[in-house]
Protein backbone atom coordinates (compact mmCIF):
# COMPACT_ATOMS: atom_id res chain seq x y z
CA UNK A 1 0.00 0.00 0.00
CA UNK A 2 1.44 3.37 -1.05
CA UNK A 3 0.16 6.93 -0.87
CA UNK A 4 -0.37 6.81 -4.65
CA UNK A 5 -2.60 3.75 -4.32
CA UNK A 6 -4.47 5.43 -1.46
CA UNK A 7 -5.30 8.39 -3.71
CA UNK A 8 -6.55 6.19 -6.55
CA UNK A 9 -8.65 4.29 -4.01
CA UNK A 10 -9.96 7.61 -2.67
CA UNK A 11 -11.31 8.77 -6.03
CA UNK A 12 -12.73 5.31 -6.74
CA UNK A 13 -14.29 4.45 -3.39
CA UNK A 14 -15.64 7.94 -2.64
CA UNK A 15 -17.28 7.88 -6.10
CA UNK A 16 -15.36 11.04 -7.02
CA UNK A 17 -14.51 9.54 -10.38
CA UNK A 18 -18.19 8.92 -11.18
CA UNK A 19 -19.21 12.42 -10.12
CA UNK A 20 -16.60 14.12 -12.30
CA UNK A 21 -17.04 11.88 -15.34
CA UNK A 22 -20.84 12.06 -14.88
CA UNK A 23 -20.86 15.86 -14.96
CA UNK A 24 -18.65 16.23 -18.04
CA UNK A 25 -20.26 13.38 -19.98
CA UNK A 26 -23.73 14.76 -19.19
CA UNK A 27 -22.80 18.14 -20.62
CA UNK A 28 -20.94 16.42 -23.46
CA UNK A 29 -24.28 14.95 -24.49
CA UNK A 30 -26.31 18.06 -23.69
CA UNK A 31 -24.12 20.51 -25.66
CA UNK A 32 -24.69 19.09 -29.18
CA UNK A 33 -28.34 18.25 -28.36
CA UNK A 34 -29.16 21.82 -27.32
CA UNK A 35 -27.25 23.21 -30.30
CA UNK A 36 -29.23 20.98 -32.66
CA UNK A 37 -32.63 21.31 -31.09
CA UNK A 38 -32.51 24.82 -29.59
CA UNK A 39 -35.07 26.31 -32.01
CA UNK A 40 -37.55 23.50 -31.23
CA UNK A 41 -36.88 23.80 -27.50
CA UNK A 42 -37.57 27.54 -27.59
CA UNK A 43 -40.68 27.06 -29.70
CA UNK A 44 -42.12 24.33 -27.44
CA UNK A 45 -41.31 26.38 -24.37
CA UNK A 46 -43.79 28.91 -25.77
CA UNK A 47 -41.47 31.88 -25.48
CA UNK A 48 -43.28 34.93 -26.82
CA UNK A 49 -41.70 37.30 -29.32
CA UNK A 50 -38.90 36.96 -31.84
CA UNK A 51 -35.67 35.41 -30.54
CA UNK A 52 -32.51 35.71 -32.57
CA UNK A 53 -30.88 32.29 -32.19
CA UNK A 54 -27.37 31.56 -33.49
CA UNK A 55 -27.27 29.16 -36.44
CA UNK A 56 -26.76 25.53 -35.53
CA UNK A 57 -23.13 24.52 -36.09
CA UNK A 58 -20.47 22.13 -34.72
CA UNK A 59 -18.74 25.16 -33.17
CA UNK A 60 -21.92 26.07 -31.29
CA UNK A 61 -22.24 22.47 -30.02
CA UNK A 62 -18.69 22.48 -28.64
CA UNK A 63 -19.09 25.97 -27.21
CA UNK A 64 -22.33 24.93 -25.44
CA UNK A 65 -20.51 21.96 -23.95
CA UNK A 66 -17.54 23.93 -22.60
CA UNK A 67 -19.51 26.85 -21.20
CA UNK A 68 -22.03 24.63 -19.39
CA UNK A 69 -19.63 21.90 -18.25
CA UNK A 70 -16.99 24.25 -16.86
CA UNK A 71 -19.42 26.11 -14.58
CA UNK A 72 -20.56 23.00 -12.71
CA UNK A 73 -17.36 21.08 -13.41
CA UNK A 74 -15.01 23.59 -11.78
CA UNK A 75 -17.32 23.76 -8.75
CA UNK A 76 -17.19 19.97 -8.39
CA UNK A 77 -13.42 19.84 -9.00
CA UNK A 78 -12.85 22.51 -6.32
CA UNK A 79 -14.85 20.62 -3.67
CA UNK A 80 -13.31 17.26 -4.58
CA UNK A 81 -9.79 18.73 -4.55
CA UNK A 82 -10.47 20.39 -1.18
CA UNK A 83 -11.63 17.05 0.28
CA UNK A 84 -8.24 15.52 -0.49
CA UNK A 85 -5.96 18.55 -0.08
CA UNK A 86 -7.46 20.12 3.07
CA UNK A 87 -6.57 17.00 5.05
CA UNK A 88 -5.82 19.05 8.17
CA UNK A 89 -9.58 19.61 8.49
CA UNK A 90 -9.60 16.24 10.28
CA UNK A 91 -6.66 16.58 12.71
CA UNK A 92 -6.69 12.89 13.72
CA UNK A 93 -6.27 11.81 10.09
CA UNK A 94 -3.71 14.57 9.60
CA UNK A 95 -1.71 13.17 12.54
CA UNK A 96 -1.73 9.72 10.89
CA UNK A 97 -0.20 11.07 7.68
CA UNK A 98 2.00 13.84 9.10
CA UNK A 99 3.79 11.53 11.54
CA UNK A 100 4.53 9.00 8.82
CA UNK A 101 5.38 10.98 5.67
CA UNK A 102 6.69 14.37 4.58
CA UNK A 103 4.28 17.02 3.31
CA UNK A 104 5.68 16.63 -0.22
CA UNK A 105 5.08 12.87 -0.08
CA UNK A 106 1.52 13.46 1.16
CA UNK A 107 0.56 16.24 -1.27
CA UNK A 108 2.17 15.09 -4.53
CA UNK A 109 -0.12 12.09 -5.20
CA UNK A 110 -3.16 14.11 -4.13
CA UNK A 111 -2.43 16.92 -6.61
CA UNK A 112 -1.50 14.57 -9.43
CA UNK A 113 -4.36 12.09 -9.06
CA UNK A 114 -7.04 14.79 -8.78
CA UNK A 115 -5.62 16.77 -11.71
CA UNK A 116 -5.40 13.64 -13.90
CA UNK A 117 -8.94 12.58 -13.00
CA UNK A 118 -10.38 16.06 -13.60
CA UNK A 119 -8.61 16.48 -16.94
CA UNK A 120 -9.61 12.95 -18.02
CA UNK A 121 -13.25 13.68 -17.10
CA UNK A 122 -13.16 16.91 -19.13
CA UNK A 123 -11.52 15.07 -22.05
CA UNK A 124 -14.17 12.35 -21.98
CA UNK A 125 -16.93 14.97 -22.11
CA UNK A 126 -15.14 16.70 -25.00
CA UNK A 127 -14.89 13.39 -26.86
CA UNK A 128 -18.61 12.71 -26.38
CA UNK A 129 -19.51 16.25 -27.49
CA UNK A 130 -17.24 15.91 -30.53
CA UNK A 131 -18.71 12.54 -31.52
CA UNK A 132 -22.34 13.57 -30.99
CA UNK A 133 -21.78 16.85 -32.82
CA UNK A 134 -20.31 14.89 -35.74
CA UNK A 135 -23.37 12.63 -35.85
CA UNK A 136 -26.03 15.34 -35.38
CA UNK A 137 -24.61 18.53 -36.88
CA UNK A 138 -21.20 18.18 -38.44
CA UNK A 139 -17.55 17.56 -37.56
CA UNK A 140 -15.84 20.26 -35.48
CA UNK A 141 -12.22 21.18 -36.27
CA UNK A 142 -10.33 18.32 -34.54
CA UNK A 143 -7.00 20.14 -34.16
CA UNK A 144 -8.66 23.27 -32.80
CA UNK A 145 -10.65 21.11 -30.37
CA UNK A 146 -7.44 19.46 -29.23
CA UNK A 147 -5.67 22.78 -28.73
CA UNK A 148 -8.70 24.27 -26.95
CA UNK A 149 -8.91 21.22 -24.67
CA UNK A 150 -5.25 21.62 -23.79
CA UNK A 151 -5.91 25.23 -22.71
CA UNK A 152 -8.89 24.17 -20.56
CA UNK A 153 -6.80 21.36 -19.05
CA UNK A 154 -4.18 23.89 -17.94
CA UNK A 155 -6.94 25.97 -16.38
CA UNK A 156 -8.29 22.91 -14.52
CA UNK A 157 -4.81 22.17 -13.15
CA UNK A 158 -4.56 25.77 -11.94
CA UNK A 159 -7.95 25.41 -10.23
CA UNK A 160 -6.70 22.31 -8.36
CA UNK A 161 -3.49 24.11 -7.36
CA UNK A 162 -5.41 27.17 -6.13
CA UNK A 163 -7.65 25.00 -3.96
CA UNK A 164 -4.49 23.38 -2.60
CA UNK A 165 -3.08 26.82 -1.77
CA UNK A 166 -6.31 27.78 0.00
CA UNK A 167 -6.16 24.50 1.94
CA UNK A 168 -2.83 25.63 3.35
CA UNK A 169 -4.41 28.89 4.52
CA UNK A 170 -7.66 27.52 5.95
CA UNK A 171 -8.30 24.09 7.50
CA UNK A 172 -11.82 23.67 6.18
CA UNK A 173 -12.98 21.78 3.12
CA UNK A 174 -15.84 24.13 2.13
CA UNK A 175 -13.68 27.14 3.03
CA UNK A 176 -10.79 26.05 0.82
CA UNK A 177 -13.12 25.15 -2.06
CA UNK A 178 -15.04 28.43 -1.90
CA UNK A 179 -11.87 30.53 -1.58
CA UNK A 180 -10.43 28.73 -4.61
CA UNK A 181 -13.60 29.35 -6.63
CA UNK A 182 -13.68 32.98 -5.47
CA UNK A 183 -10.11 33.48 -6.68
CA UNK A 184 -11.00 31.99 -10.08
CA UNK A 185 -14.02 34.31 -10.34
CA UNK A 186 -11.83 37.33 -9.54
CA UNK A 187 -9.33 36.20 -12.18
CA UNK A 188 -12.22 35.91 -14.64
CA UNK A 189 -13.31 39.48 -13.93
CA UNK A 190 -9.71 40.70 -14.21
CA UNK A 191 -9.54 39.24 -17.73
CA UNK A 192 -11.59 42.28 -18.86
CA UNK A 193 -8.74 44.64 -17.92
CA UNK A 194 -7.03 45.79 -21.17
CA UNK A 195 -3.45 44.61 -21.83
CA UNK A 196 -3.41 42.52 -18.59
CA UNK A 197 -6.37 40.31 -19.51
CA UNK A 198 -4.67 38.21 -22.22
CA UNK A 199 -1.96 37.28 -19.71
CA UNK A 200 -4.35 35.92 -17.11
CA UNK A 201 -5.26 32.21 -16.71
CA UNK A 202 -9.00 32.85 -17.21
CA UNK A 203 -8.21 34.02 -20.75
CA UNK A 204 -7.58 30.35 -21.59
CA UNK A 205 -11.25 29.48 -21.00
CA UNK A 206 -12.38 31.69 -23.89
CA UNK A 207 -9.64 30.17 -26.04
CA UNK A 208 -11.62 26.98 -26.64
CA UNK A 209 -14.51 28.81 -28.37
CA UNK A 210 -12.16 31.08 -30.30
CA UNK A 211 -10.00 28.25 -31.63
CA UNK A 212 -12.94 25.97 -32.54
CA UNK A 213 -14.54 28.93 -34.34
CA UNK A 214 -11.36 29.28 -36.43
CA UNK A 215 -9.62 32.03 -34.43
CA UNK A 216 -5.86 32.43 -34.14
CA UNK A 217 -3.78 30.83 -31.40
CA UNK A 218 -2.75 33.78 -29.26
CA UNK A 219 -2.47 32.27 -25.79
CA UNK A 220 1.23 31.92 -25.02
CA UNK A 221 1.16 34.72 -22.45
CA UNK A 222 -1.77 33.19 -20.57
CA UNK A 223 -0.19 29.71 -20.82
CA UNK A 224 3.03 31.02 -19.31
CA UNK A 225 1.20 32.79 -16.47
CA UNK A 226 -0.98 29.74 -15.76
CA UNK A 227 1.94 27.30 -15.63
CA UNK A 228 3.91 29.68 -13.39
CA UNK A 229 0.91 30.34 -11.12
CA UNK A 230 0.18 26.61 -10.83
CA UNK A 231 3.76 25.81 -9.90
CA UNK A 232 3.88 28.73 -7.44
CA UNK A 233 0.60 27.67 -5.80
CA UNK A 234 1.76 24.06 -5.39
CA UNK A 235 5.11 25.18 -3.96
CA UNK A 236 3.49 27.70 -1.58
CA UNK A 237 0.91 25.21 -0.35
CA UNK A 238 3.63 22.63 0.35
CA UNK A 239 5.71 25.21 2.20
CA UNK A 240 2.81 26.57 4.26
CA UNK A 241 1.42 23.15 5.12
CA UNK A 242 4.86 22.05 6.24
CA UNK A 243 4.94 24.94 8.71
CA UNK A 244 1.44 24.40 10.04
CA UNK A 245 1.05 22.96 13.54
CA UNK A 246 -1.66 20.35 14.06
Amino acid sequence: MTLWRVEWLRIWRTRTVWILFGIFIFFGVLGPLTAQFLPEIVERAGVAGEIDLPPTSPELAMSQYVSNALQIGILAIAFIAATALAFDSKPEIAVFYRTRATITEILTPRYVVIAITAVAAFASGTLIAFALSTVLIGTPDALATLKGSALISLYIMLAVALVGLMSSLISSVPGAALLGIGTLILLGIATMVPYVGPWLPSYLVGGFDTLVAGGEFDYWGAILTTVAATAAAVWASTYLMGRREV
Partner: peptide, 21 residues
Protein backbone atom coordinates in the same frame (compact mmCIF):
# COMPACT_ATOMS: atom_id res chain seq x y z
CA UNK B 1 -9.67 9.85 19.20
CA UNK B 2 -7.94 8.16 16.26
CA UNK B 3 -9.59 8.42 12.87
CA UNK B 4 -8.63 6.88 9.55
CA UNK B 5 -9.77 7.10 5.96
CA UNK B 6 -13.29 5.64 6.30
CA UNK B 7 -13.17 3.98 2.88
CA UNK B 8 -10.03 1.95 3.67
CA UNK B 9 -10.30 -1.43 5.37
CA UNK B 10 -8.56 -2.19 8.66
CA UNK B 11 -6.02 -4.35 6.83
CA UNK B 12 -5.30 -1.62 4.26
CA UNK B 13 -4.86 0.95 7.04
CA UNK B 14 -2.30 -1.21 8.83
CA UNK B 15 -0.54 -2.01 5.52
CA UNK B 16 -0.37 1.72 4.72
CA UNK B 17 1.04 2.50 8.15
CA UNK B 18 3.69 -0.20 7.75
CA UNK B 19 4.65 1.01 4.28
CA UNK B 20 4.90 4.64 5.42
CA UNK B 21 7.00 3.52 8.37
Amino acid sequence: TPKFEPWLTARETVELSAALG
